[in-house]
Design a protein around this nucleic acid. Structure first.
Lengths: 192, 192
DNA sequence: TAGTCGACCAAAATACAATATTAGTCAAAA
DNA sequence: TTTTGACTAATATTGTATTTTGGTCGACTA
């Protein structure tokens, strides 16, 4: 028996094809052929093309989440955790930029199921940031009025930082910017 | 001169039409009719539709700039200036969100002359923020390693903040978020 | 002479019908 | 349980006739 089930194999293959061509320009038959299956078989595992895509995004988000959690836990203090989280997040998103590139065409076609997924992962991320903040408050590292609002704002900042390279603008100074941003954020949250 | 008045009138009328329908879906003839002129007359004042649009953007950017400068100068300290600048900028962009709405269709058609304008005004804005920072350092309000990089990062944060409502997501908590952001930024830059 | 006009043109956008792909189904079979 | 490929309705694409649009120009005027 293969370590990887058929369904997971399809998800992986679909992921690489969706990543190259986006949701709309990828056909179910194309994925089926790449997976050496008949198109009909796809509908044994997934109710629709949308559901297949959703599972691909879900799987990739899990990897994203795991990497982020790992980076975060490599720090001892809340400050370090926030810093590692920020650095890793920005770099991960940057690596995924070419992935987003293919999705750009789908972007205006406002697929509302994507919106749903996005919201869910935004929420998860906010919770994770909030946890760092709460830990920092408990540690006497941070002094924050409203952790929930602050977590939301930090997430907005992080998401804003990805915009430049989400829209082609290459940024060779990104590492300097990240450190500069972190200096402001950490000092801004710090208990002094 | 009378001619200068006509040109400005055309720019204003064109602005409101471009604002409603975007660059592509607005026709030169439409603008001409609204200005009670023949289409040919448009080409007496502007070399092309692009140039007309460019002048519209230029004019509106000037208003934007002036409002920002005004808000900024209402503060006495650098901290106040930064705060006023931030608040005004975010609110101005939000008011313009419906304007951007119409432009969304043009967005993917990557009009590179728009990119040029954007770069120019980004630079101006960065300079303005940098001036606040330098003033703050001179005042002993701020303590900043690299003002240029910091100004760039602040601009990136501000531009990131506009993304949510640039993409429909209405945000009823925006004022709380702005104050929360400002608290972080000001404390993050503060000399303590 | 600065400003306006509208007929005119080539290029681009649109409309529409014919054609081809595609998402999704299903009965049969492995 | 899993796979298949023929099948269909809906969607997308293509080719083409038609219209619209950006832009020009010579004539006109105040």
């Amino acid at each position: 028996m293969e370590a990887e089930g058929t369904k997971d194999r399809i998800i992986n293959i679909a992921g690489s094809i969706f990543g190259r061509f986006g949701f709309q320009k990828t056909t179910v038959d194309e994925i089926a052929r790449a997976a050496h299956k008949a198109k009909g078989s796809m509908y044994y595992y997934f109710r629709s093309k949308e559901e297949l895509f959703q599972e691909v995004v879900e799987a990739e988000s899990k990897v994203f989440s795991r990497e982020l959690a790992k980076a975060m836990n490599q720090g001892n203090t809340a400050k370090e955790k926030l810093a590692n989280y920020t650095r890793t997040r920005i770099h991960l998103v940057r690596e995924m930029a070419n992935y987003y590139e293919a999705m750009k065409n789908d972007y205006l076609v406002h697929l509302d199921f994507i919106e749903t997924i996005r919201k869910k992962y935004d929420y998860e991320e906010k919770v994770r940031i909030k946890m760092i903040l709460i830990e920092g408050i408990a540690n006497n590292e941070f002094e924050i009025g409203n952790e929930d609002l602050t977590a939301q704002v930090l997430l907005t900042i992080l998401k804003g930082f990805e915009m430049p390279f989400l829209l082609n603008h290459k940024d060779y100074e990104i590492d300097n910017k990240i450190e500069c941003l972190l200096r402001i954020l950490v000092r801004g949250l710090e208990k002094c």
